[in-house]
Design a protein around this nucleic acid. Structure first.
Length: 862
RNA sequence: GGGGAUGUGGUGGAACUGGUAGACACGCUUGGCUUAGAACCAAGUGCCGCAAGGCGUGGGGGUUCGACUCCCUCCAUCCCUACCA
């Protein structure tokens, strides 16, 4: 028997591709280029899951299609291999992270190769390879030289369990993103990157990118630009000090009834009165030891303390009490606010809690019953602003502030500078020496600075990073002066390596810089970048930042790295039916609480009733839902098992057939069955299962009109759908072709060849095998993509649905030559027997004719 | 609280710029092949109805000859984010 056997042919072609270097990136530059990039994975110990191949299959289809379209394609893969899991494993077992990492990479590489991705493995990169991180360190040195990297003592998110500092983004609800351990605030010396210096460009340049609008919005939101004014308030009895506030509502200045400083504000100590000192001190101390989680939980109720001091209103010269409260953040704006309770909800709450005055300065719209009014309206109680709308009042007030030198127009960003150091071992060491003369960067020829061998990976007892244990490495001499120096013991965060990896693929062995400028100008920008939405802000923002810095340095020639970006949707586990049982009785799942047992049911025990699923034969509602795959839920699908059972081509096909790439969708192993059957049918269409040779029905004959139509319809649909990344409907077009072709008694060989070509990006192994059976001796990877010819798609006869009042009542067939003739079509439509009946029952008032689409006759009752 | 996305058969999903709703696939039903099963092949399958026919794209309203598609409004689910002055 020679039936379709993926296990045999897939291994064979994977070996063939590797041995023949089929997917080696061309170095000539005579053709148009296409750079298609995947987000490289962290090689975790648990191996690939089915989420990875989703985006990877999509880009692989594009890469294979573009090669056949005559493009030079760069389609690389690598490893984001620094990271916490390998280090935690090292802490537990003493195994060096590089060993774990190497082992995991090997597994990942094998898994990816088993799916038949057309990566150029000669360009594989690894962020932990000294030849790679040499240039990560080099870029850091450039950032340092440009004044974009600085050290500061900052309150950081310290996670005692992990023994490390986390970035704001790695802290979720006051707990660490990894592990869910508590996080507290603690001041520490840290390296910081001045991403805020690029805030405006990062914001502006989003406009020209071919990215999903929702994702651009997320970045805009994250950067969070707001326009307003900075205003200086004098402090009573302290002539030398002023409090500067940032506000987006300078028009409400007359409504200021108090001021608030963040507890960490530098003036707090100075201006606090003797009577208030102990209360203020207590409050500040509390705020400092509170973790973010505590602050959030307690935030439902506004807290604060009066400092005992007063500020002077810059216009009215009235005195205003100065408070401290933790609802004001030291890290945003100036760390101080002017409170306008009448027009700000947070200020209103605070004013209510502490019985502070409230003065409306914007007339709320009629019928307004709320508290703070943040809408538009005319200014009141505001002297020279009275009667103006919000916008006009803002401008007028800013002008007044500038004329009187007490304030000015100002712009603020939510975006903070990027906390760039971690108290970890398994990361890039900073190429930095600390000496008694301060910080000295290493010179380029001293790179890469490699990690020392250590025997323990834990932080030191006093919270110093693990590298502090490597005293021989830490205590060194400054080669320039010969004087003692101390190495930086922090390492870079995982983001560092992924900030520029797309450049290294272009010239992975280039020694003159991060990227060979000659090839950089050819391959950049990345034409298509596909990855998960979870990187929407962090990775993509950081990489854009570094790219812009490299652009300013002249290292790269484009101002943005990723021209087009697509987020694949998450793949959920199989749909689960869950019923609830309380005290041994089934209860509707809506009433379930903690005391309820949740019982998983199989799909045979449930049925749909109205909007809901119920236990079969009852009306007891159950929950029908697909959940995120997770180890703890036990619903993780392993691609290896799918490949073993159905083959890699079926896995690829199913990943794409599930639905639109961007959408969240549940896995269904039954669905894999469906695409697997399709491949079997395709195989049997061409192959005689007795002898494994080409079927005798495949002959060198001229295709019929019908066959050309079916073929070209498929070519057209598949081509267009690949271009627009609608792979699910492309596969359905391939299925339709096979279903049709199965009814033909003879199939022209040329038609078969074209079919195999358009199948090949999706299911490359079976396609190569069929291509060979069709008599070819080389891979079809570079065969020219078939062009479709519109003329084959025309019919002799056109069918018009005929509607009466918008409802289809009959079908009319007209010769193609007369299909655009309105009069002819309408006359014949009216002549249809079924239509006659309707015409007699009413009065024809309107005739709608849409060429090639529809006829609609509008009839009014007699 | 803010931002984003989604809602179509029993299920995943199709439907181009408003023009036959449900392509393709899963599941299911019936029949064939088979000792039997699997696989395969054939036919059927939105709902109600014996039928004629009617009803149908989360609910309600609107625009239009015609609405899954456009507008208003409400509801549900998911994701991101959160005291950002």
């Amino acid at each position: 028997m020679h039936s379709y056997n993926p296990a045999a042919i897939e291994k064979k072609w994977q070996t063939y591709w590797l041995q023949h270097q089929t997917f080696k990136t061309p170095t000539d530059r005579s053709k148009p280029k296409y750079y298609v990039l995947d987000m490289f994975p962290y090689p975790s110990g648990s191996g690939l899951h089915v989420g990875h191949p989703e985006g990877y299959t999509a880009t692989d289809i594009i890469a294979r299609y573009k090669r056949m379209m005559g493009f030079n394609v760069l389609h690389p893969m690598g490893w984001d291999a620094f990271g916490l899991p390998a280090e935690q494993y090292a802490v537990k077992t003493g195994t060096h992270p590089s060993i774990t990492t190497e082992h995991n990479i090997k597994r990942f590489r094998e898994q990816l190769q088993a799916i038949g991705f057309s990566y150029d493995w000669d360009r594989e990169i690894n962020t932990t390879d000294p030849n790679y991180f040499k240039w990560t360190q080099w870029i850091f040195l450039k950032l340092y030289e440009m004044g974009l990297a600085y050290e500061d003592e900052v309150a950081v998110n310290w996670c005692p369990e992990l023994g490390t500092v986390l970035a704001n983004e790695e802290v979720i609800d006051g707990k660490s993103e990894i592990g869910g351990y508590p996080v507290v605030r603690r001041p520490m010396r840290q390296w910081i990157l001045k991403i805020t210096a690029y805030a405006e460009r990062l914001l502006q340049d989003l406009d020209d990118l071919d990215w999903p609008e929702s994702l651009k919005d997320m970045q805009r939101n994250w950067i969070g630009k707001s326009v307003g004014a900075e205003i200086d308030f004098k402090i009573q009895e302290y002539d030398s000090e002023q409090i500067r506030v940032f506000t987006t509502r300078p028009d409400t200045l007359f409504g200021v009834t108090y001021m608030v400083l963040a507890p960490e504000h530098h003036l707090v100590d100075k201006i606090t009165s003797e009577q208030q000192r102990s209360a203020v001190h207590e409050y500040v101390k509390n705020a400092a030891t509170k973790s973010d989680l505590d602050r959030q939980e307690l935030s439902k109720e506004k807290t604060g303390v009066w400092t005992g001091a007063f500020a002077i209103h810059p216009v009215t010269n009235k005195q205003i009490s100065i408070w401290i409260a933790d609802y004001v953040l030291v890290s945003y704006g100036t760390g101080a606010i002017m409170a306008v309770p009448a027009q700000d909800e947070r200020d209103w709450e605070f004013a209510e809690a502490f019985d502070l005055p409230i003065v409306r300065t914007v007339q709320p719209e009629e019928g307004f019953t709320g508290k703070a009014y943040t809408g538009d309206g005319l200014a009141i109680n505001s002297e020279f602003l009275n009667g103006m709308g919000v916008d006009e009042a803002k401008n007028t007030m800013i002008q007044w502030l500038e004329d009187n030198r007490v304030g000015s127009k100002a712009i603020n960003y939510k975006l903070r500078d990027w906390l760039f150091s971690r108290q970890r071992y398994w990361g890039e060491p900073f190429p930095i020496l600390h000496t008694d003369k301060g910080v000295i960067p290493l010179s380029e020829d001293q790179l890469p600075l490699e990690l020392p061998v250590v025997d323990r990976y834990q932080p030191t007892g006093d919270g110093e990073p693990p590298l502090a244990n490597a005293t021989q490495w830490v205590y060194t001499i400054d080669p320039a002066t010969g004087k003692p120096a101390k190495r930086e013991t922090n390492t870079m965060p995982q983001w560092a390596g992924s900030c520029w990896y797309y450049l290294r693929y272009i010239s992975p062995d280039w020694e003159g810089g991060p990227v060979d400028p000659d090839y950089e100008s050819y391959w950049m920008p990345v034409d298509l970048y596909v990855g998960g939405a979870e990187h929407a802000v962090l990775h993509l923002l950081y990489a854009r930042f570094w790219h812009k810095v490299l652009f300013d340095l002249g290292v790269v020639s484009t101002k943005e790295p990723f021209q087009k970006l697509v987020n694949q949707g998450m793949i959920l586990g199989e749909v689960e039916y869950t019923a609830a049982k309380k005290n041994g009785e089934w209860i509707p799942v809506d009433y379930a609480d903690e005391a309820t047992d949740r019982i998983r049911l199989s799909d045979e025990d449930v049925e749909k009733k109205g909007d809901h699923f119920v236990i079969k034969g009852t009306s007891i509602r159950i929950e029908a839902r697909a959940h995120k795959m997770s180890k703890s839920r036990g619903n993780v699908i392993n691609p290896d098992q799918i490949i073993e059972k159905f083959g890699a081509d079926s896995l690829r096909l199913y990943e794409m057939f599930m639905g639109p790439l961007e959408q969240v969708k549940p896995w269904s192993t039954k669905g894999v069955d469906g695409v697997n059957r399709f491949l079997h049918r395709a195989w049997r269409l061409l192959v005689n299962e007795e002898d494994g040779k080409l079927k005798s029905t495949i002959c060198e004959i001229e295709p019929t009109k019908e066959q050309l139509k079916v073929l070209h319809a498929a070519i057209k649909k598949v081509s267009q759908d690949i271009e627009t990344m609608r792979f699910n409907t492309a596969i359905s077009a391939l299925m339709i072709f096979v279903n049709e072709a199965n009814t033909w008694s003879q199939i022209p060989k040329a038609v078969c060849q074209n079919f195999v070509q358009i199948l090949s990006p999706f299911a490359p192994h079976i396609s190569e095998e069929l291509w060979m059976k069709l008599g070819h001796h080389e891979s079809l990877a570079y065969q020219e993509w078939p062009a479709f010819d519109e003329q084959h798609l025309t019919d002799d006869e056109i069918m018009y649905p005929v509607q009466i009042n918008g409802k289809v009542r009959a079908e009319l067939f007209v010769p193609a030559g007369l299909s655009m003739d309105k009069q002819y079509v309408i006359e014949n439509a009216k002549a249809l027997e079924k239509i006659q009946g309707y015409l007699e029952g009413g009065r024809l008032v309107k005739e709608i004719f849409v060429p090639m689409r529809i006829v609609n006759l509008v009839i009014a009752p007699q």
